[in-house]
Amino acid sequence: MTKHKIYTMSFASVYPHYITKAEKKGRTKAEVDEIIRWLTGYNQEELEAQLEKQTDFETFFAESPQLNPSRTLIKGVICGVRVEDIEEPTMQEIRYLDKLIDELAKGKAMEKILRE
């Protein structure tokens, strides 16, 4: 079976779209970075290094220092699919991130986005 195209795309190529989506709704790059750090366990320097290296999505999540155990609390539909029902682990991580960015753009409070 061939890998989904998103796995081989560089995270850095999609990252600006996350920021644009958030900023169009009055949110900030700092909030996008906070969400990514919360989900993956990267610190800011590690996140920037991954962006600099043009790391692909599969590697980005595989090298995550500590995927947040609370990420399983993320529920809902993204691209017509319930994130909690996605069976392929890497795709589920990508969709968790998509869902969190959507919640940010919809104006949800950071405490709720970060499942605090």
Rank of each mutant, 00 (worst) to 15 (best):
N43L: 04
K29Y: 09
I35Q: 00
V14R: 03
L51E: 01
G26V: 04
K25I: 01
K99Q: 11
E116R: 15
V81N: 06
I86G: 05
E45C: 00
T28H: 01
A62D: 14
I94S: 02
V32K: 05
T20S: 12
R82D: 14
T8D: 12
S70K: 15
E58A: 15
E88Q: 08
G26R: 05
D98T: 11
E88V: 08
E116Q: 15
E48A: 08
S64Y: 02
I101C: 08
P65A: 02
K29S: 10
R115K: 14
P65T: 03
M1A: 03
G80W: 05
A109H: 10
A12P: 00
T2S: 05
S10V: 03
F11Q: 04
K29Q: 14
I6C: 01
Q66P: 00
E93I: 03
F61H: 06
E23S: 06
Y15M: 01
M110R: 04
S70F: 11
A30G: 05
E58I: 11
K24M: 14
L39Q: 07
G80Y: 07
K3M: 12
L73N: 06
L47G: 08
I101A: 09
G26Y: 10
H4L: 11
K29V: 10
K21Y: 09
I86S: 11
L67H: 06
N68K: 10
A12S: 12
